[in-house]
């Protein structure tokens, strides 16, 4: 591990909203190809942490490094630093509430990034978008508007939209939390296939069995700190600390 440059590193990361300290001195390394599960109670800072990784939240203190380059909060930054513009081209994010663009068709949602940001031609972008739609099982929905899709379908489109940028890392922020229970499976299946395909991912999740299944490492956060960290086996199946056991017990009914 030591001689591989981590996909993302975090050093001494702190984030406050006013007087509220949400993240307290976080250190973290994400290896290429790793699937990191972030679990913890509400308000423990999981979402804020993942949002700091692509600068949707600007850290109050500390640094984030992408492939060894210091991330700057500016859109453009001088090398060797990396600006948020370039960072976000390489780090995709999928949101709890999908955040699809309602005025654009499914196809346009997926191609907006490649066309506007990467400067791809429409034909090329459309072809790749259709390919991605087929991969998430929605080839027939290319011309539909988001309002006409189910939650599970919306989230699969959102995944395709993120993948269309050919990201090197994917951040998934509670992507199944807003879904009806019967729609969770179809979204998790897509993520599972990404994990098998070697995509580097950070997933904030409440789906413990899913985290145990796909994650290569799990971090348990509590009160803005990393409380425990280890393999899914250690953290999810054989928790040692009282707090972690208490937290997990709520998910086994």
């Amino acid at each position: 591990m030591t001689n591989i440059t981590p996909a993302i590193s975090v050093r001494g990361l702190c984030k406050s909203f006013g007087a509220l300290k949400v993240l307290k001195d976080i250190d973290l390394d994400l290896a290429p190809g790793e699937v990191l599960g972030l679990i913890g109670p509400s308000g423990s800072g999981k979402s804020t942490l993942i949002r700091c990784l692509n600068m949707l939240e600007t850290p109050t203190d500390g640094t984030v490094l992408f492939q060894g380059r210091i991330v700057s909060p500016k859109f453009h930054a001088k090398a060797p630093a990396i600006g948020t513009g370039e960072l976000r081209r390489k780090v995709g994010m999928i949101f709890q509430h999908f955040n699809l663009f309602p005025h654009l068709t499914v196809l346009e949602n997926i191609t907006s990034g490649p066309i506007r940001v990467l400067g791809e031609g429409r034909a090329e972008a459309d072809a790749y978008a259709l390919d991605l739609l087929a991969q998430v099982g929605l080839a027939d929905k290319a011309q539909a508007y988001p309002a006409h899709l189910s939650g599970g379908q919306k989230q699969r489109v959102a995944i395709a939209r993120a993948l269309a940028m050919r990201p090197e890392v994917l951040l998934l922020d509670e992507v199944t939390s807003a879904l009806d229970p019967e729609l969770v499976g179809e979204v998790l299946e897509v993520i599972r296939r990404l994990a098998i395909g070697g995509m580097t991912m950070v997933l904030v999740t409440h789906e413990m069995s899913f985290a145990a299944d796909v994650a290569s490492r799990v971090i348990f956060m509590e009160q803005g700190k990393i409380a425990e960290e280890g393999s899914p086996d250690q953290i999810l199946r054989n928790p040692t600390s009282e707090r972690l056991r208490g937290f997990l017990s709520r998910f086994h009914g």
Binding site: G85, E86, R88, R89, G92, N99, G113
Partner: peptide, 8 residues
Amino acid sequence: EAAAAIGM
């Protein structure tokens, strides 16, 4: 946020 997240 979604627009920012795809690099716009």
